[in-house]
Design a protein around this nucleic acid. Sequence first.
RNA 1: GUGGGUGUAGCUCAGAUGGUUAGAGCGUCAGGUUGUGGCCCUGAAGGCCGUGGGUUCGAUUCCCAUCACUCACCCCA
Length: 418
Amino acid sequence: MIQKPRGTIDIMPEEMPYWYKIEQTAREVSALYGFSELRFPTFENTELFARGVGDTTDVVQKEMYTFTDREGRSLTLRPEGTAGVARAIIENGRCSDAMPLKLFYIINCFRYEKPQAGRSREFFQYGAELFGSDSAAADATMIALAKSVIEGIGITGAKLHINSIGCPSCRPEYHAKLREFFASNEDKLCPTCRERLKTNPLRILDCKNEACKRLTEGAPKTIDCLCEPCAGHFESLKGLLAASGIGYTVDTTIVRGLDYYTHTVFEFISDKIGAQSTICGGGRYDGLIKQLGGPALPGIGFAMGITRLILAMKASGVELESGIKPRLYIAPMGEAAQIAALSITSELRGAGINAECDIVGRSLKAQMKYADKIGAQYTLIIGDAELESRRAILKNMETGEQSEIGVRDIDALRRLLG
RNA sequence: GUGGGUGUAGCUCAGAUGGUUAGAGCGUCAGGUUGUGGCCCUGAAGGCCGUGGGUUCGAUUCCCAUCACUCACCCCA
């Protein structure tokens, strides 16, 4: 047997109602907020991610599905959506549209990681991006959109965490302060954090190691080292959230792993779905468009992992009915009846009524069992006797009641079932 | 990439200090009066006991490796 590749998932029919619910809610709520849907390539030139996401990030360094095509071009399966959207709006000249430009997408992404609960190599996300505003009001709008979607699909108990990681003008100073703070305790840090001290000290704050956690107490926080504009932006955001009644906690450990983030970063976290608890992650990326060769255009966006949303929905007690139940099952006996059954089925379907009939050639008893199993509301029995008398037997499967109805009386059936 | 757990029928799981025909429940299919479901009864199909090596007279059972699933680290959605 050939198995599916590691880290991929099959989504069987029983699961589809959850996907429909999320996709439908995402589209409706996005539209409500004035966002338009777009689609873009599953693979891009590798350079897009190297430059956009950042070639020092884990995602780019060790998690991308990169391959060479027949012409020797280096291509990469998208590991996230923002870089593709940014490229698309630059390439399609939308940076000169009326601002803000508000877009959303529902896509699959690929990352070569070791699978676990809430994490797979092909994963799916709903994301939204807002370009052309560097105002905190834009941040608040994005957070409100994310919250509406999360609540709209029935997830309860998700917590909003926000932080500001500064901008290119205040970050170097912050890194220096962090290095200074940890310098005396360098030997007590875990090996990875000792490395982080040199490369990206910001990440030490995110370490799960107990010893490191203790050492981070009292460490300088990004929000204490923000430059004037950054601090002002963060204060405005907090004010706007409070004014809209959106609860939040300032979480100085949120450190996004994608280089393009600046200023505001945020996550919605569910504590009921295992270790991969971030169901929505996002932030501001004011330098990205320029970095990719476009104009200096600020932006902010987020993405939500759809399978994680489903885990959170189920943990929140959301139960969705699966399966399509026919209104009528037609049980023919004999060849003549089979012909009649097929044509009645077809006419009912044409009238928008879900009807089924036997196409396996089962006995009447087996057909009744089958009709019961698939949840048919009515069964219409047609045999030679019924063709003769032109009166078929209609059985209500719930009550067991039987009555007669004209064999070809489609109108009567439509009245009953429509 | 690192670590823990698991791998027996479609599903959920038993099982034997290593010994000849590997079990149950559910599900599927067929019957239980000649044209009728849900309950009940009977029967059938369906497993090289994840794969490859090793130890052994003999391995599904013990050992090793490998693959897959799973949880966690890491990272992130």
